[in-house]
Computed example of a mutant assay.
Amino acid sequence: MSISRILKWISGILELGLAIPIIGGSIIIFSGYSALGFMFVLHAITVILSVRNQEPAYGSLFGILTSLLAWIPVVGWLMHLIAGILCIMTGIKNSPRYNYPPNPF
């Protein structure tokens, strides 16, 4: 299992945790919104590793968008839920998009 797939699982579980209505909102508010910054960085690293491994990155890309817009109460809850599901779905996929020889760079 690649590191990007492990990070997709971790970020998906964290996003689903932040989607719990009162608990997730409390974590975000009491952390001074730094939880959203942490998730932004985690998703950005996951996107970079996914592109390098030629794996789908749409879950983490949506997670980046979620980190930017999750300060809006109901929209944030829905986006955390969708981002968590998408990250876990992309983490489940076991094969790269292309089975052509990987790029050496």
Rank of each mutant, 00 (worst) to 15 (best):
S2P: 14
S2M: 10
S2C: 08
S4I: 07
I6G: 05
L7K: 06
L7A: 09
L7W: 10
K8W: 07
I10G: 03
I10N: 00
L14N: 03
G17W: 00
L18H: 04
L18P: 00
A19K: 00
I22A: 09
I23W: 14
G24D: 00
I29P: 00
Y33F: 15
Y33W: 14
S34C: 09
S34A: 13
S34P: 06
A35C: 07
A35W: 12
L36K: 04
L36T: 05
F38G: 15
F38I: 15
M39S: 14
V41D: 13
L42I: 13
H43E: 12
A44W: 08
T46C: 14
N53L: 05
Q54M: 09
P56F: 11
P56G: 13
A57M: 03
Y58S: 09
G59W: 03
S60Y: 04
F62G: 00
G63F: 06
G63A: 06
I64V: 10
S67E: 10
L68D: 05
W71I: 09
W71Q: 05
P73M: 03
W77P: 01
L78S: 08
I82M: 10
G84Y: 02
I85E: 05
C87R: 02
I88R: 03
M89F: 12
M89Y: 15
T90M: 11
K93H: 12
R97V: 10
Y98C: 07
Y98S: 14
Y98H: 10
N99T: 09
Y100N: 10
P101D: 05
P104W: 08
F105M: 11
